[in-house]
Nucleic acid binder design. Structure first.
Lengths: 331, 331
DNA sequence: CTGTTAGCGCATTCAC
DNA sequence: GTGAATGCGCTAACAG
C-alpha cells in the first residue's frame, strides 16, 4: 500500500544537506550544479524513492508537456489508430499524449475537454462527436489553448484542423468505379453515416457530387452493426449486383460479413468499397478496396502544429485508394 | 488564440465582491452559501469565463478523481476494447480515465507510469508489456498508489490483478476440439506468442496442459502479421488439415486471411480458433470461433477495486467459448 | 555555482 | 455563513 506521504524535494534537500533549489536544478537538469552536490542529491533522491510531483511543477510553470486527445470512442479502429500514431509522434519530443474517450456522448466529450483544459494541457487534439453540437466544446478549448480538430471538424471556430479531403476520396472511388465497374448492370449504392459529423457529411456530399445527386443512399452510424443491417436491406430491396460504396471500413466490413453470410459472392455479384484504410481492411477476405488516409503523416502534422504555435491553420491531406479484392482495380 | 492569462478565483472574487473562499465554496458546492452571493459568484464566473484550474486543486487536495491506464498499444483491438470499457465504467462515478499508450516499449511504459504517478492519479491500471521486465514499473506504481494489473501481470508485486483464467480458456478449447474435431486426421497446432507476457505464457502452458506437452507450437507476437506468417509456415511445412489454435484473435485473423488467400478452405480443410472475443471475430468470414473474455465485467470489477481501496487482491474471471464457423461446435 | 524567497491556484483551516 | 490566512510541491528571480 502507498506510504502515507511520498518524499518531497524538501525531504531530499534535508537529507542531502542542500537547498531545495539545488535539488530542483539537479533533478530537472535545468542549470549546472557542482558534481559533488549532484551526487549527494541523486543519492538522497534515490534513497527516499523521490519522484517529482508534476502537479507542483505544472502549477509553477506554464507548460505541462502534455497534449490531450479526445476521441469519440476507442472501439472504432480508425480512432484508435489515430490515437496510437499520435502517441508515437509525441513520444519523441517527450510530450505525453493522454487520451480520453467521449464514449459517443456530447456530455462526456465536454467533460473530457473541461478536464484537459483544467489540467493545463499545452494543446488539445479533438475529434468532435458532432458537426454542430460539439461547437461549445471546440470553442471553449480554442479560447484556452491551441486546439486542433482531427478528422472531423466544427466550422467557424478558432481551432486548427487536420484531416483528409473526403471529397477527393470519393473522387478516387468514382474514378475507380468508372474504370472497373459496369454501372448499368452493377449500380452504385452508398451506405453512409448520418451527416452529423463533418466526415459523414463530406463523404455523402462527395458521393452526390462525383456520382449523382440521386445516388441511392442508406444512412446509419459508423459501425459494423449498421453495415450488416444496411446489407440486409439492400438484399431485401432486391438490389442484386450492386456496387456498395461505404463511408467507413467498419461499415464496409459489416456489409461484407452479411453478404458473405448470406452466400452472396463478392466481387462477382456485389462489390464493396471502404473508407479509412484501417489494418483490418487488408485482413478481410476478400480484402477490402478502400480509401486510405495517411494517418502517420497526419499525426506528424499535428505534432508540428503543436510545436510551432502559429496561428490556427488547416491542412487537408490527399487520400489514396488501395485496391483489394472486394472491388478489383480491373473488372 | 488563448488569452494571456485565464481567469482565476481571485478574479471572480474581485468581480463578485466576495472572498475567494466564497467563490471556492460556491463553485465546488462543498458548503452551503447564501443564495444571493451564490448568484453573484456564478454570474461573475460566467462573465469571466472562469474554469477551475485542476492543477491548483490537485495540489491542494490529495485526490484528483483521475485514474490512469497504461496499455501496451492501442492497435490491438483487445486493448482498445478494454480502454473503452474502462472509460465507460469510470464515467459514471465522475472519474476521468486517462489512457497512455506504451507503444510496445518498456521505456515508454515506464514513462507512462512515472507520468501518471507524477500527476497524482488516484489509481493506476496497467497492462504490463513484459512479464519480468515490467516489474520495476509495476512495483514503483504499487508503492505510490493503488495499482491494478489488467489482462497481464508481473508476479510478486503489491498490485491487484484482474484478468481471465487463460488456462480455463484453453480447457474450453480442448473440450471443444475433443467434441468436434477428429484430431488424428486434423492435428492441433498452436500459433502463440512468445511467453514474455503472462497472458502469452499462461495460454501456452494451458495448451501444453490440456492438449499435450508436445503440441506443435509456433511463437511470434500478438499481431495479424505474425498470424499470416505462421500460416505460411504451416502450409510450407505440409501441415495439411491442421486445427490451428491461436493465442489471440488478431493472430487468428491473420492466420485465416492467409489460409483463405491461398485458397484453402476453413473449416473443411483447416480449423481456426481465436482468443479474446473482440468484435472483429464475429465479422470475419467464416466467423471466428474464439474464447471470449468478459471485458465489461472486468471493467466493473476494476472500478469497484478502485472505489473501495482495500488490500490488493486478484480476481480471475471465467471466459466462455463462442462458436463461429472457423471451427463449428458440431463436426 | 548556491541559497533564500516568492508565488503559481486552490481548498481548507481558523476566527468571526 | 463569511473572510483572512495558510500551505500543498515546485521552479524562477534575485542575491550573494
Amino acid at each position: 500500500m502507498p506510504p502515507s506521504r511520498s518524499a518531497t524535494m524538501a525531504d531530499v534537500a534535508r537529507l542531502a544537506g542542500v537547498s531545495v533549489a539545488t535539488v530542483s536544478r539537479t533533478l530537472s537538469g535545468t542549470r549546472s550544479v557542482d558534481p559533488a552536490m549532484q551526487r549527494k542529491v541523486t543519492e538522497a533522491a534515490e534513497r527516499l524513492g523521490y519522484r517529482v510531483n508534476l502537479v507542483g511543477r505544472a502549477l509553477r510553470q506554464t507548460r505541462t508537456s502534455t497534449v490531450g486527445l479526445v476521441v469519440p470512442d476507442l472501439d472504432n479502429p480508425y480512432f484508435s489508430a489515430l490515437a496510437q500514431q499520435l502517441s508515437r509522434a509525441f513520444s519523441d519530443p517527450g510530450i505525453d499524449l493522454l487520451v480520453f474517450s467521449a464514449d459517443g456522448s456530447l456530455e462526456t466529450e465536454a467533460r473530457g475537454v473541461r478536464s484537459f483544459l483544467g489540467r493545463q494541457v499545452d494543446a488539445l487534439v479533438l475529434i468532435p462527436v458532432h458537426e454542430q453540437l460539439s461547437e461549445p466544446s471546440v470553442t471553449a478549448a480554442a479560447a484556452a489553448v491551441h486546439t486542433i480538430q482531427l478528422d472531423r471538424r466544427v466550422q467557424g471556430t478558432a481551432a486548427s484542423y487536420v484531416g483528409v479531403s473526403n471529397r477527393a476520396g470519393m473522387q478516387l472511388v468514382r474514378e475507380h468505379v468508372a474504370a472497373a465497374v459496369d454501372v448499368s448492370r452493377q449500380p452504385v449504392v452508398y451506405v453512409g453515416a448520418t451527416p452529423d459529423s463533418s466526415s459523414a457529411h463530406e463523404r455523402l456530399d462527395g458521393m452526390r457530387q462525383y456520382f449523382s445527386p440521386d445516388v441511392p443512399v442508406l444512412l446509419g452510424d459508423f459501425s459494423a452493426a449498421w453495415g450488416r443491417e444496411a446489407a440486409a436491406r439492400i438484399l431485401a430491396d432486391g438490389w442484386t449486383g450492386a456496387t456498395i460504396v461505404t463511408a467507413a471500413d467498419v461499415i464496409a466490413l459489416g456489409v461484407l460479413a452479411h453478404l458473405l453470410h448470406e452466400g452472396r459472392s463478392v466481387p462477382d455479384e456485389f462489390r464493396v468499397v471502404g473508407f479509412d484504410g484501417i489494418g483490418a481492411a487488408a485482413l478481410a477476405h476478400p480484402s477490402l478496396t478502400t480509401v486510405r488516409q495517411p494517418v502517420e503523416e497526419m499525426a506528424r502534422s499535428i505534432r508540428s502544429l503543436v510545436e510551432s504555435d502559429d496561428e490556427p491553420s488547416s491542412r487537408w491531406f490527399k487520400p489514396d485508394i488501395v485496391f483489394g479484392a472486394t472491388s478489383p482495380a480491373a473488372p
